[in-house]
Design a protein around this nucleic acid. Structure first.
Lengths: 205, 205
DNA sequence: TACTATACATACATGTACGTATGTAACCGC
DNA sequence: GCGGTTACATACGTACATGTATGTATAGTA
């Protein structure tokens, strides 16, 4: 034997990365389902196939775990959306593409994390709340930029300030997608309709 | 003295009703802000100006308090919305009126209760979750009825099933209103736009 | 091969929030 | 006015979740 030894016995760094990934995914699903306070680290560890010891070996606290999950989700979200924005012909198309793909993205049970934690921590002075709000602000800023571009190009009629429209689009799409979980073809279609509606565009379909 | 004795010393039933109301309102605000698990009954009682003893004298458990809050909010919501539905000229106008007034309704910090608890308990097999889902189902059923009426009258173009549209409208409006808390003139306007958008109607403004 | 560090489990300590039991003062019917 | 009930406060027990300390086996290194 000794053959394929490179794969049979993973290195420590590989083990560490694997467990960390498993714990992060379990935590994301858990927060998504139960929220922050209701989710116990015991369940996170168990669902990942480990014990709480493993969890505390990788994350200093429940709070740090949540922060890591938020960062992880954001790092998964942007690489999906960024090309849609840069490849789109015009800002409106970009916004619609992001909305549709956000609906698709949220079909994974991972992604209610944002809304759940946002709802649970909004207004509080909590690090997790701040992280969530920061992530939201980045999306809103990007949306507002696109909306301004659309206004300048005459594609979006005048009306409320771009920032307000951006917050409306984000909230509307997120709320719709959460309420339409599982309605597979329609979640995407109606996400587009929310964008068109909030922006004051005529419906295309 | 002895004058105005009727107002100076309230009867027991009056005291009970007053405390119950104060506790319910404090609980509604609390759930709205902190969610279910994160809110402690100590804080509810304190903010209402009582002790936990008073709370447990009126409500058997935290769960029962939450159920009472859900019922109380629903009993506040429907009397506002029902006349809008019956007075409206057509189903689309009714839906828009409800959406706009829901935005106004949610300016009170009371009314995030629905979304917060819904997010926290969705999928769980918990009495509070069931109560929330029941309340949501009643709204969706009413919306679906209106949408069907609008389809029959040719006011709403064909597309996804009425129930799906109804869930989309509810989710979209709720999400938008939560994200637009405090944006006073725009929350109402954009709530209408979400309805128009999801239903596939041309934008009127 | 021996020695250390790392990955993870197990056991323990602490805090906190729920629920209950008990106490007290004010109200109500007789 | 008096016994009983009601409204509420205070004190207590208990369960559970977080965080910590300790133990063990395996990977890395000399």
């Amino acid at each position: 034997m000794g053959v394929t030894s490179a794969r049979a016995r993973p290195t420590q760094a590989q083990r560490r990365a694997r467990t960390r990934g498993a714990l992060l995914e379990a935590a994301a699903r858990g927060f998504s389902k139960d929220g922050y306070s209701a989710l116990t680290l015991e369940r996170v560890a168990a669902e990942a196939g480990y014990s709480r010891g493993a969890l505390y070996h990788q994350f200093a606290s429940k709070e740090e775990l949540a922060l890591a999950v938020v960062a992880w989700v954001e790092e998964t979200w942007w690489p999906v959306m960024a090309p849609l924005i840069s490849d789109a012909d015009d800002p409106v198309e970009a916004l619609i593409a992001v909305a549709r793909n956000h609906a698709v993205f949220c079909r994974r049970d991972i992604a209610r994390v944002h809304m759940v934690l946002s709802v649970e921590f909004s207004g509080q002075d909590h690090p997790v709340g701040r992280a969530i709000e920061d992530a939201g602000r980045r999306v809103v800023a990007e949306f507002a930029r696109l909306i301004e571009g659309g206004r300048d190009a005459g594609l979006i009629p005048p009306g409320p300030p771009p920032r307000v429209l951006a917050m409306g689009v984000l909230g509307g799409v997120e709320g719709l997608v959460i309420n339409l979980a599982g309605q597979v073809p329609f979640d995407e279609l109606l996400a587009e309709r929310v964008v068109r509606g909030v922006l004051g565009l005529p419906s295309a379909l």
